[in-house]
Amino acid sequence: MNPIEFQGLTKRYKRLVAVDSLTASIQKGRITGFLGPNGSGKSTSLRCLLGLASPTAGTALVNGMRYAELDHPLSTIGAVLDNGGFNPALTGLQNLKVICTAASIPDARAEEFLQLVDLESAMHRRTKGYSLGMKQRLSLAAALLGDPGILILDEPTNGLDPIGIAWLRNFLRGLADSGTTILISSHQLAEMQHAIDDVLVIDKGTLIADGTLAEVTGGQSLEEAFFRLVGGAK
C-alpha cells in the first residue's frame, strides 16, 4: 500500500471540472513534485486528500484511509497549504499551542519546532506582523508537530529567501532519507529539479505525466519538459 493514492479523483464546481479522474500513487520515502499551471487542479487535489473538500467522485487516500478516518492525523500527515491558516491576533507560539492542545501534543513541541524553523526570536510576536517567509516557516513547524510520516507542501518556498530555500531543500532531503514521504506542489521548477525524485504533472485537471524525474524530463531540464508537456511558450 502506497502512502498516498488518488483513485479516479474528480472534483467539480458546478460546470467547472477542477480535477478529472486523477489516478496516481506517491511512493514511500520519495519526494514527489506535483506540477501544473495555475488552476490546473493541484491545490484542489490536495484539499480533497486532506479532507478539506469533498470529491465529486473517486477517492484520495492516506495509508489506505480517507483523511477523516485517521485516528491521529497530525502524526500521520503534515500539511503546509498556501493560505496559511493562522490567527493573526495570536503569536506564533500561541497558534501552535492551539494545535498542540487539540492533537494531544505537549506544548514543549511547539517551542522546539519554532526553534527548528528559525522562528525562536519571533515566537512571541503576533503573526499579523510576520513576513510571508516567516508564515511559511510557521506552517512548516505546524506540519511537523506530530512527527508525521507524510508531508504535503503547497508552494513551500513562497516568500523564502535563497538561504531559506536551500535550508528547506536539505531539510526535506533529510526527512525523505529517513523514510518520510513528501509531496510538493510548486511553480519553482528550477528549484524543484534539485529537490524531487518523482514527478506528477497535471493540466486542466487531468494527469499528463507521472514517473521518476528522469523518465518525465527525458534528458531535458524540468522547465523544458514542463513546457513541452503543458504546451507553454518556452
Partner: peptide, 8 residues
C-alpha cells in the same frame, strides 16, 4: 484549515 486538519 488548521483546525480541521488537526481534527478532521
Amino acid at each position: 484549515v488548521s483546525t480541521f486538519l488537526t481534527t478532521p
